[in-house]
């Protein structure tokens, strides 16, 4: 599970509202909706578009021009050119992320097309966005891209430490969308034995969301005790996303930042309704109070 990131990564500077970031014109400065739309509309400076796309998603813009402009930005992608600074592809990725947050089904067609883009970063952003949009039509495409399993889609590329497919995002999207049919479960299941713990975590999360079978929680609870902090954090976020109530005590015991435990516990309250395990909300709230 990717961690919450308040500032767009490649341009990480002062976020909106950070003190001392006065003045105008710098992509990291606080801006308003009108300015964000204007920056996205121009195409001379992709770095301004990049920040504008992020801004519109972060602030859940309801402006009628937001979605059309983001779709335009998504279509801006082109073959990668590493020397070009903030490339159009980075703008497209941020546009995809923002479209997931704005919740408009009008974005589904373009996001689906992006799932077959050659930029795996864009495929990743599109998969997450389609998950957030609960786009049923994404399920067959995601199934197809993951069908080759851990030794195909999940194999490490020869030119980088990345996998052939952004498996984590795609598995999580299948869990979010919620089609609990046997063929979908069958595509996800082999990834629970992937060599990378983050992929196992994503697969177990999806299966637990779809099937509610406690056996998939076992691996997630074990990952809360993994020696690497990054893995423990991912397992926290995944148990929260599922809303797995029996994880309350293990989450509280996990060696990780209170901020992340609080997000996981919030998930137990807000995402837990569909499970048979109904701990009193008060027990979770009490645990949250103790972490403040």
């Amino acid at each position: 599970m990717s961690l919450p990131s308040p500032v767009p990564a490649p341009l990480a500077g002062p976020g909106p509202g950070a003190p001392g970031s006065g003045g105008t014109g710098h992509p990291g400065d606080p801006i308003d909706e009108v300015e964000a739309l204007a920056r996205l509309r121009q195409s001379d400076d992709p770095s301004l578009q990049y920040y504008a796309a992020w801004w519109l998603g972060r602030h859940r813009s309801r402006h009628p021009e937001a979605v059309p402009l983001l779709l335009c930005a998504l279509r801006q992608r082109r073959p990668r050119d590493p020397g070009a600074g903030v490339e159009e592809n980075a703008v497209a990725r941020n546009a995809a992320r923002a479209l997931g947050k704005l919740g408009d089904p009008a974005a589904v067609d373009d996001l689906l097309a992006s799932l077959d883009d050659e930029d795996d970063g864009l495929r990743e952003a599109a998969a997450r966005a389609l998950g957030e949009l609960r786009a049923l039509r994404a399920v067959p495409v995601l199934q197809r891209r993951l069908a080759s399993g851990p030794s195909g889609a999940g194999a490490v590329r020869s030119d980088s430490p990345r996998l052939h497919e952004p498996c984590e995002a795609m598995l999580e999207a299948l869990g979010e969308i919620g089609v609990a049919e046997a063929p979908v479960l069958a595509v996800i299941e082999p990834f629970t034995a992937h060599e990378r713990p983050l992929i196992r975590s994503a697969a177990c999360r999806a299966l637990l969301q779809l099937s509610g079978e406690p056996c998939w929680a076992t691996e997630l609870l074990q990952l809360l005790e993994h020696p690497q902090l990054q893995v423990r954090r991912a397992a926290l976020m995944d148990l929260g996303a599922v809303g797995w109530r029996p994880a309350l005590e293990p989450i509280c015991r996990t060696l990780a930042e209170n901020s992340l435990k609080l997000i996981a516990l919030r998930g137990l309250v807000e995402n837990g309704e569909h499970h048979e395990f109904q701990t009193e909300h008060t027990a979770v709230l009490q645990a949250m109070d103790a972490l403040l």
Binding site: R266, V269, E270, H281, T282, L285, M288
Partner: peptide, 11 residues
């Protein structure tokens, strides 16, 4: 907007 905040405030 956040359900868990509403819940905590009601408690």
């Amino acid at each position: 907007p956040t359900p868990v905040v509403r819940l905590r405030a009601r408690l």
